[in-house]
Design a protein around this nucleic acid. Sequence first.
RNA 1: GGCAGCGUAGCUCAGUUGGUGAGAGCGCCGGAUUCAUAACCCGGAGGUCGGCAGUUCAAAUCUGCCCGCUGCUACCA
Length: 515
Amino acid sequence: MSTPRFYVTTAIAYPNGRPHMGHAYEAIATDVIARFKRLDGHDVRFLTGTDEHGLKIDQAARAAGQAPKAYVDAMVAPFQALDAALEISFDRFIRTTDPDHKALVQALWQRMAANGDLYLGRYEGWYSVRDEAYYDEAELVEAQDAAGTTVKLSPQGTPVEWTVEESWFFRLSAYQERLLALYDSQPGFIQPQSRFNEMRAFVAGGLSDLSVSRTSFSWGIPVPGDERHVMYVWLDALANYLTGADASGQGGLDGEWWPADLHVVGKDVVRFHTVYWPAFLMSAGLALPKTVFGHGFLLNRGEKMSKSLGNVVDPAEMVSRFGVDRLRWYLCREVAFGEDGSYSDEAIVERTNADLANGIGNLAQRSLSMVAKNLGGVMPTRGAAGDSELRLKQAFHDGTDAYFAAMNALALHRGLEALMGMVNAANLYFADNAPWALAKTDVARMAEVLAATLDATRRIVLLAQPFMPGSCARLLDQLGVAADARDFNALNTPVAAGAQLPPPAGVFPRITLES
RNA sequence: GGCAGCGUAGCUCAGUUGGUGAGAGCGCCGGAUUCAUAACCCGGAGGUCGGCAGUUCAAAUCUGCCCGCUGCUACCA
């Protein structure tokens, strides 16, 4: 009898600026999955962190007159603060400047080299420092600079210069067949489906070898045996998942948590995670992750966030304005996981008032306050189930099934949809049985209705925990649910009749959008 | 340019292999009610199902073309 394990990761963030809503979204979604798995009886390891090497960091540090490490130390702090504010339950916050990671990446390199997949060559082309990428001549656009001379720019509009450097290459071209075999044998490897199709087509179109080292800067992990080179940032960055799999902190390639069950990444980096990463692992003779999920982007009022549009939102400010659980709820409920989504202050207020204040919060408050006023706060006894109770039970049976099916399929928004269906069923049960009227005519029956409502509420809050850990803990306190009866194993363990409940207090006050 | 997907009520979207009068949630309007956070409950509001032309007894659901949007990818050497 071994506990099932689940190793889940976010992509690591590049700390060359402040964290934005995209970071918050990925962290929240992954945290919800991690918490769901824990409550569902899994032994979970959740890894997140920062990707700290590369030319851009090096240059920014110089500009700031700091050593790179000191610079990133300061830049990483806001990311860690954000994770704390968002109540992200990671087991390790990895930084690619951590010593065990350096050791691991070098070991990984040596494995790949031993397999004959690394060779020294020359790389030349139009290089954009800002994008850290080479471009084909044809991709470039011409523009006038401030002095009026014609300059070449990358498709992103960043300056490029002709660059020639010696580079180590990875024989990616040798892995086309194995990658295709991977995709075909494991259709769930890349999710959602649309990303799978794109990546398969990309690989089917042929692969070029990949430059995996640079000599143009030194802020990186040195190539073993050729220290003029530092490793290409993606090889360095992707390997963080392996480093984090060794919980001993030794940076061994045989980390006990490997392989990962799930990498949650942005749709923009799906290729790195589903083509390069498995090829690296195959080369090193290591197991492959089970699933890579590419989530969508968040749009501010339907528009992409950008500094020039001036619509960049600080997620920490959103937390202080709405509260962490309203933000978590909104992002998981309103955005189809895997699709792009949009948010606005109005939408957050509207959605969370409807679901949390009017729905879950009101359900808890109306039933708890009746128990407090009419029954001295003592948990009432369930009665024999009549038609009304059977309908409620059926709705919860179906809803719970739908919830688990959705959550296990990573359809977080569907999980919450199922949850709200149960909230509606419970509110309907309450209204149909009108316990406030029974209080004057049949107190025993009233108590039964309250007991049934309270247990329905308990089930709802239990299932809502991955999304709103803090608020749910407070609600479960009010519902008299013991600390050791809060995982999904306890779904069918009602609070014992006779238990004294604390005085109820609203957990989800209705909010308005002032100013 | 190629490949893939999308365009359904104000908003976000469901709509298996074509067939009872096209749906849900939110918002909105009306009613009822008062346990509750003016919340819950009930009812309603009528959208050319992007456009055009076809296939069919019958299409939102199939075919072709067009318009718009998105993603991946390629090339104008």
